[in-house]
């Protein structure tokens, strides 16, 4: 079984040479996955998904190119290729294949990618919420909800309607007026969802335009906007799902 992969040609966007260490086998410098000199598979390092693909921490990603890279790496990292390799290489190919799948699944999806970037940038939504409640308790100040009140009202009202529609459905009643209203609601929600995605792309551009060494005072405002947007979106997504469920015959 051959593991003599040719040294990687320099990639335009997938800069695998970005991470270099000494190769465990020949001692020469290597890229993230294979030694640039001898082509040997390298150990799986704890790394973020962007780095795994040799990508900068930017949010506009060429998904078609990512897919190509994924398939290319899948073939080259496949455990079958290492079935008769040394134990450690076999293990690394397993680990790397699993990293590759996780990284690809996360980065190809716009929402998962954004959420992941926020996570590795240190955003902890739940911790923030708890901390804000603790502060409200101590100071008597009102905790500002991360979701705008108008949206919460709307979500609440829609949930009331959905509940009624579900009960009707269970009883085998189809109230045509309520269903018509729900159709309209679905279209509204879809439009809202689309508008949110446009807004998100705007924030991606803001984020990607930040210089590499931009400090916290520049990064935080963009991050906060994305956090707020993901929060609003998760409500809209749930409602779309629930409305569709009710409208299903």
């Amino acid at each position: 079984m051959s593991v003599t992969n040719k040294p990687e040609a320099a990639l335009q966007m997938f800069d695998e040479g970005a991470v270099t260490h000494a190769c465990w086998s020949c001692g020469d410098m290597r890229a993230a996955h294979f030694c640039q000199s001898c082509g040997k598979l390298q150990p799986a390092l704890p790394t973020d998904y962007f780095t795994f693909f040799g990508l900068p921490r930017k949010l506009n990603v060429d998904v078609a190119a990512l897919e190509n890279e994924f398939y290319k790496l899948s073939r080259k990292l496949h455990p079958d290729l290492y079935a008769r390799a040394a134990g450690q290489e076999r293990q690394w190919s397993l680990e790397k294949s699993s990293q590759l799948n996780d990284a690809y699944r996360t980065l190809r999806d716009p929402i998962a990618r954004t959420g992941y970037l926020l996570k590795i940038e240190g955003v902890q939504l739940e911790e923030q919420s708890k901390a804000a409640t603790d502060k409200a308790r101590q100071t008597g100040e009102e905790k500002k909800q991360v979701i705008p009140p108008e949206l919460l009202e709307e979500v609440f009202e829609l949930n009331m309607q959905l509940e009624e529609a579900r009960i009707n459905k269970k009883m085998g009643e189809r109230d045509p007026e309520l269903l018509r209203e729900m159709e309209g609601t679905r279209n509204d929600l879809q439009a809202k969802h689309d508008a949110l995605m446009d807004e998100l792309h705007g924030y991606w551009n803001e984020w990607d335009a930040l210089p590499e060494d931009a400090d916290e005072s520049l990064r935080k405002p963009v991050r906060d906007k994305m956090v707020g947007l993901l929060n609003r979106r998760s409500y809209i997504r749930n409602l779309v799902r629930d409305v569709n469920e009710v409208l299903e015959a």
Partner: peptide, 8 residues
Amino acid sequence: LVGAPECG
């Protein structure tokens, strides 16, 4: 009226 966005 409050919301937990993590789970909607």
